[in-house]
């Protein structure tokens, strides 16, 4: 990974020197070994801070949202999942392709800095495992799907077995059991909206949950409002979730959000077919459920 770090730094330095970019988005080291976080390099001198290591798990494509209204030309280093985030932003016209220089890094799987921080923090009596993060064990696309330059050897998907096994288990429940399951699951939500904020596919300028007139979803920490929040948020991700798993990873109360996302991935796949969200970029293409046609064969709407 040191080698990849060196290569990415060299590419970023060259891009700055040639005047091709104004910023480069990647990761930097915090003060402890496991603290790797998102980073914006603004000139060739900053480039030495860029790092790609076993904790570079943060989905950097999310950082692009802070630049969508500006004119900076952006270099960005991406893993497989991050690159799918870029496709989403391109499809949603949030950023123009010609503003980006994408350095793809096939990803060997990451550890979770948050799990390490929890172990280090001493609030729990049990230590969490130090291996690859759950989201990385579930990874189907470690290799970047869009890039201008690729750094490092290709990697194989790590996901094993039936990707939808747990979804199918939940589908087998009776309606009442299923309702109870989700009601219990969402009852612990503290509505911090980290799952929304960390989500690259959540790129709406005004989120429905921030609308006050009318207020679509109440602010109460109750099973009704919590359930409305999650069902609306995740339904909105149908055909859009790029399966980066960041929502579930950052949740401070451990809600298994990817279970909901995976159900929607499965349903969208069954109903519409085609490539999954963010798997390929075709200029002008739109994900399912985002096109309106007057001659739509479905009478709904």
């Amino acid at each position: 990974m040191k080698e990849i770090t060196n290569k990415v730094q060299a590419i970023a330095a060259k891009l700055f020197e040639e005047g091709k970019i104004d910023v480069f988005l990647a990761w930097e080291k915090g003060e402890l070994n496991f603290k790797t976080k998102s980073y914006v390099a603004r000139n060739a001198l900053d480039v030495k801070n860029i790092v790609f290591d076993e904790y570079s798990i943060y989905n950097v494509s999310n950082s692009l949202l802070k630049f969508r209204d500006s004119h900076e030309r952006i270099g960005i280093a991406v893993k497989g999942c991050d690159s799918r985030g870029i496709v989403r932003l391109l499809e949603d016209l949030q950023i123009k392709r010609d503003r980006l220089y994408i350095v793809g890094i096939p990803c060997p799987g990451m550890k979770d800095p948050l799990a390490a921080a929890r172990n280090h923090g001493g609030f729990s009596k049990k230590q969490e495992e130090d291996g690859l993060a759950k989201k990385c064990l579930d990874c189907i696309q470690p290799n970047p799907v869009i890039y201008d330059e690729l750094v490092g050897p290709e990697q194989s998907p790590r996901q094993q077995g039936d990707r939808f096994a747990r979804v199918k288990e939940i589908e087998q429940m009776s309606a009442d059991e299923r309702y109870k399951f989700w009601e219990d699951t969402f009852s612990t939500c503290i509505r911090c909206y980290a799952c929304r904020q960390v989500c690259v596919a959540c790129d709406c300028r005004t989120c429905i949950f921030d609308e006050m007139k009318p207020q679509w979803v109440g602010r109460e920490n109750s099973s009704t409002d919590n359930m409305m929040y999650h069902l609306v948020k995740h339904s909105h991700m149908a055909g859009r979730c790029i399966e980066c798993g960041e929502c579930e990873r950052v949740c401070p109360v451990n809600i298994p959000l990817m279970l909901l996302n995976r159900k929607l991935i499965k349903d969208v796949g069954t109903l519409f077919g085609g490539p999954e969200a963010g798997m390929q970029y075709v200029e002008g293409s739109k994900p399912p459920l985002s096109v309106y046609r007057e001659n739509d064969p479905d009478s709904f709407l």
Partner: peptide, 10 residues
């Protein structure tokens, strides 16, 4: 710069 403005800390 890195802050994503979730409300977890609060």
């Amino acid at each position: 710069q890195p802050c994503i403005n979730c409300g977890m800390c609060t």
